[in-house]
Design a protein around this nucleic acid. Structure first.
Length: 348
DNA sequence: AAGTCGGGGTC
DNA sequence: GACCCAGACTT
């Protein structure tokens, strides 16, 4: 443990980081504002998401939903549409719920107290600390993967970051180097972790605190952080039926209890009456972080008016065309089949 | 305390 | 193919 370490011995590290951050902060749209709404949205967008990947989503989201009121009054499906392709879709659902919390519980004014921010849906200890420190001069460390990596290296600390107590452990460790300006300190740790103290091949030669980094001086950078738990990908086999006629096709909305929460998809099954209209089958494989995905897609061209209307009447599927589908959020692996409907035969 | 949730980049 | 990313929620 670090009970034997004193703040006064390490505070200069945090001050060096602030100085480095003043000159080297990344030029990002949400760096120019202290609007808690925008900081909140950017923190959610970039959870487990690289800046390059989420930047367009963030900009589009802010343009369409510029404030809490606009967001709260918009339908959930449209919020999901602006989250299309980002993954972790419960983030979009929770953002929408939280916006209504802010309207109902805080008169539409984003709460400034850490404990109040923490009550909002989808906001945990990290995000509450980030928003409160950046926007309201809060003093909580925004402990994330960057904190784990930077701190474990500076102190050559082998505490297992997959341990559920890692958040508290590294919160205490960060207190040793945390200066008065916590908002800039939190962002400095993010930028250092992303630009310099990277997971692989960190740029230690350019690091402003390499003189203070114990792992670097021991030439053991690659040994930190320690992480024991591995996530094993599970196999998931899906079947979808691309049932279409005259440019229209059938879709339904998923539940919120599994992968692709509340996103739209093709029917996962059909009645035997439609079997004669199956023209072709194709299997596509996708590698997700936690899933090995195999999707069997059936091309079902219904060239019978009566069969089409009978099937629709018997089920609750929605009918759409390519234009209409653009107003809904589909899982990434299904996007191709919608975008290229005109050339669907080339796909199959 | 352990599982689950996407998609994409990097090595 | 394994690991990681401005984590939070459920069980």
């Amino acid at each position: 443990m670090e009970k034997n370490k004193r703040n006064s011995d390490f505070l200069h590290i945090g001050n060096k980081l602030l100085k480095w951050y003043d000159k080297n902060a990344r030029d990002l749209p949400f760096r120019k504002t202290k609007d808690p709404y925008k900081i909140w949205i950017c923190e959610i967008v970039f959870q487990q998401t690289r800046i390059a990947q989420g930047l367009n989503h963030y900009n589009n989201f802010i343009e369409r939903f510029p404030d809490v009121k606009t967001l709260a009054e918009s339908p959930e499906d449209e919020v999901l549409l602006y989250w299309k392709g980002l993954g972790y879709y419960s983030r979009a659902i929770n953002i929408h719920k939280a916006s209504q919390q802010i309207i109902n519980d805080y008169n539409g004014i984003f709460p400034s107290d850490y404990e109040d921010i923490l009550k909002l849906k989808g906001i945990g200890k990290y995000t509450a600390a980030a928003v409160s420190s950046i926007c309201f001069d809060g003093k909580m460390p925004a402990v994330d993967g960057n904190f784990y990596r930077v701190l474990s290296r500076i102190f050559a600390d082998n505490f297992d970051i997959s341990n559920s107590r890692a958040f508290n452990y590294f919160s205490e460790l960060s207190a040793l180097i945390m200066p008065e300006n916590v908002g800039d300190f939190n962002q400095a740790m993010m930028d250092l972790g992303s630009e310099i103290c990277k997971p692989k091949n960190p740029l230690c030669g350019e690091c402003p605190v390499n003189d203070d980094c114990l792992a670097f001086s021991l030439n053991k950078i690659s040994e930190f952080p320690v992480k024991t738990k591995k996530v094993k990908a599970q196999d998931l086999d899906l079947k979808y039926y691309f049932v279409h006629r005259n440019g229209q096709f059938l879709i339904q909305q998923r539940k919120d209890d599994f992968i692709w929460k509340k996103l739209f998809e093709f029917p996962p099954m059909i009645s035997d009456d439609l079997n004669p209209f199956i023209k072709s089958v194709k299997t596509v494989n996708h590698k997700l972080t936690h899933k090995n995905l195999s999707i069997e897609i059936f091309n079902v061209e219904v060239d019978s008016e009566s069969a089409w209307e009978d099937f629709i009447a018997q089920n609750n599927y929605m009918i759409t065309d390519v234009e209409g589908s653009h107003e809904r959020s589909f899982p990434k692996p299904l996007e191709n089949y919608i975008q290229n409907y005109e050339t669907v035969y080339q796909i199959f």
